[in-house]
């Protein structure tokens, strides 16, 4: 600790302020989830669990959750496979254009989603592809690859090469070495990358809006539609409240796996 006392206190106060700023809207929303009135006026008029029952009984909501889980799992799977392959290639081999690869992968997440969305939509239409879950997965996977790639490459950089070399010296072939040495060493990086990719996919609305067909709804799409129906706005508050609570699980899990000091890994 080299910082003087007043700096530490000042920073603690500033941090507290930022956390209040981050959580105030979420807390207000959580309170609205228990508000009996359909109108979002402050202060709330009472306390009810009525909207939780409505949310549980909503069939459209259930279908949307299933769709979001499928889309998230699909996109995360594709992203992990492709991102890991790319990271291995970049980290383990030298070749012309190596430096450009990470630049290319970062583009889909750095360019605005509305551009990615329209581009994919135009292409699918041109190719006469039917819009549905598959097109959503393609859209999501495209910007999730970089997440897996970054996590894996950060881990590979810190990984000593000696176990792999020892494995090879002992006569193991490439596949065995990968399966027994490299893959286990990357395990936690894959898991935290997978979690973040899944989170991004689960919350993505812009690209989804452009790549979903008329009959397919994900959770954000359901929220957007429900918010347009005055009667369903209180149910949206409930969904938001539950989503925030549930999100604590994967976030905490990722933290535990990463063991706190994560260095260059992503969260």
């Amino acid at each position: 600790m080299t910082e003087p006392r007043w700096v530490r206190i000042g920073l603690a106060v500033a941090s507290g302020g930022v956390l209040v700023f981050l959580y105030l809207p979420l807390v207000i929303l959580a309170i609205y989830a228990f508000n009996p009135s359909r109108l979002q006026a402050w202060p709330p008029t009472g306390l009810t669990l009525h909207w939780f029952a409505e949310a549980a009984a909503n069939p459209g909501l259930r279908a949307a959750i299933v769709n979001s889980l499928i889309a998230g799992a699909g996109a995360t799977g594709v992203a992990l496979v492709l991102g890991t392959a790319a990271a291995l290639a970049v980290q383990r081999f030298t070749f012309f254009g190596r430096e450009t690869i990470s630049f290319l992968f970062v583009l889909p997440i750095a360019l605005p989603g509305v551009v990615t969305g329209i581009a994919l939509r135009t292409t699918f239409q041109t190719l006469d592809v039917d819009f549905g879950l598959a097109t959503i997965i393609v859209g999501h996977a495209t910007f999730c690859i970089v997440i897996a790639y970054n996590n894996v490459i950060a881990r590979l950089r810190r990984l000593p090469r000696t176990p792999e070399e020892a494995s090879a010296d002992l006569g193991a072939d490439t596949w065995t070495t990968f399966r027994r040495i490299t893959l286990p060493a990357m395990g936690t990086a894959l898991l935290s990358g997978g979690l973040l990719a899944f989170a991004l996919s689960f919350d993505e609305i812009i690209v989804t809006n452009f790549t979903a067909g008329p009959g397919t709804q994900t959770i954000p799409m359901w929220i957007l539609a429900a918010i347009q129906r005055p009667a369903e706005v209180p149910v949206v508050n409930v969904v938001a409240f539950v989503l925030i609570l549930l999100s604590a699980i994967p976030v905490y899990l990722a933290q535990r796996i990463a063991g706190g000091a994560t260095g260059g890994g992503r969260y």
């Binding site: 809207p25 207000i28 609205y32 949206v236 938001a240 933290q255």
Partner: peptide, 29 residues
């Protein structure tokens, strides 16, 4: 604190925007 900063990332984007609408508009927080 890391968990505290990460959690809002998982809360749906649209929901956060609507939370702000209820804060900013008339009769709001």
């Amino acid at each position: 604190m890391v968990v505290a900063v990460l959690m809002p990332l998982w809360a749906a984007y649209l929901v956060k925007v609507y939370a702000w609408r209820t804060i900013l508009q008339g009769n709001g927080f």
